[in-house]
Amino acid sequence: MSKKVGSNNAWKHILAISLVLFTAFPIYVVIVTSFDPTGGISSNSLLPVKFSFDNYILLFTDSRVPYLSWMKNSLIIASATAVTSVLIGAAAAFAFSRLRFRGRRIGLKSLLLIQVFPSFLSLSAIYVMMEQVFLVTPSLGLGSIWGLYLIYIGGALGVNAWLLKGFLDTIPLELDESARLDGASVPQVYWLIFLPLAAPVLAVTAVLSFIGTFNEFILASLFLQDVEKRTVAVGLQQFVGGQYEQTWGPFAAGSIIASVPLVILFLSLQRFIIGGLTAGATKG
């Protein structure tokens, strides 16, 4: 592996540095903008002209911008979705990876196929369904974050089962066979052998699902109509989504606050994430 280290590293640094600049550019601008009280996105100068915390203060004081509630909603719904969908996905992945049953292959195939259906065009159908649920129990229907949560985990089976199955397939068969010989039941094999082994991958799947949910805004903007109940994605989009009027300052400030926890989470799990992403592909 390590032959001729440092022999020709110049191109590596050039590539890496240009990518660092490319990556840094929008991040830099958004930071500058967040401290610029005039609300434009870098008006005529790339260097910071004015400095104030106005945009940040606005997020926590303006009653029309309940940023804290948005953040809370996003965190609740993303965490709940992440945990539930990993539980559902792991159980399904285990069944598909280790158990033999009728309809297994066709089941796997149809899961994949339905998953690639451009599902948000069924928005209207989902909307009508959730309206009906709203009539029965408002706390689970249209307008509630728990209703949205139900829809999100509806898709969990397809995505996560496939991702996790790839990893579970790499766990040697001998491991569960010997456990079975020792008298373990199938659920025991699952809970005591597979879940601990898969913990890092499960964590990664959970993080990816968390980020995915955090990012989602089409369904969320349709469902969460009350200002207080929105997620960060929907709430912030309003600042700059207008056709003629855009306020970048608060958007930038809100984005930075919302990104920080995700970035920390991501960086600290970086090692696992690399493993998790390639688990399905590089086996064998």
Binding site: L123, S124, V227
Partner: peptide, 17 residues
Amino acid sequence: ASYDALGTAWDKATAAT
């Protein structure tokens, strides 16, 4: 929450809500 949000909701609304 916005004029657009009202429009979207109206487009999809049914007698239920």
